[in-house]
């Protein structure tokens, strides 16, 4: 069992993707199937960008064992009022300036769902959002 933690700064798109790049490097070293790595990294990248685009700050906790990878993202931010609506393709609350940078197409949460085996989102408006995702390695 291995544990890793990363801090994410809200609004800093220059560093968005740092945690997913790090995790990718780790999973390559652990000889995880490249196709599984790709799914995990894509899901984490989306979730990481969500924090950067919407929240003030957040932390990522990653647990790796030989069966599965569990990722938990906890942010302090506006929260999501209607999670079901946010899960719909194309729905986005991103500001025009975020969209200009090529983010905020409303594909974030659906993409995370498609690229993980288990997804759990809990949120409190004006407090923050917690996203938990699990990917199994031996399926």
């Amino acid at each position: 069992m291995m544990h890793f933690e990363y801090h994410v700064e809200g609004g800093n798109f220059t560093k968005a993707g740092a945690a997913s790049s790090q995790l990718k490097k780790i999973l390559k070293q652990l000889n995880v199937d490249p196709k599984i790595i790709k799914r995990i990294v894509v899901a984490l990248y989306e979730a990481e960008v969500n924090i950067v685009a919407h929240a003030f700050e957040g932390d990522i906790f990653i647990d790796i064992d030989t069966e599965k990878i569990g990722i938990k993202l906890v942010d302090q931010g506006p929260g999501i009022a209607d999670i079901e609506l946010a899960m719909q393709k194309g729905y986005s609350t991103a500001s025009p300036s975020v969209r200009e940078m090529g983010f905020g197409a409303g594909m974030g949460l659906p993409n995370i769902k498609n690229n993980s085996d288990e997804l759990k989102i809990t949120s409190q408006v004006n407090i923050g959002t917690t996203v938990e995702l699990v990917t199994y390695l031996n399926q």
Binding site: M2, K25, I26, K28, Q29, L30, N31, V32, I64, D65, T66, L137
Partner: peptide
């Protein structure tokens, strides 16, 4: 990049 073919071994090495 892989530290070992076996993931458990690779984790030990990491």
């Amino acid at each position: 990049l892989k530290l070992d073919e076996n993931m458990a071994e690779a984790m030990k090495k990491m």
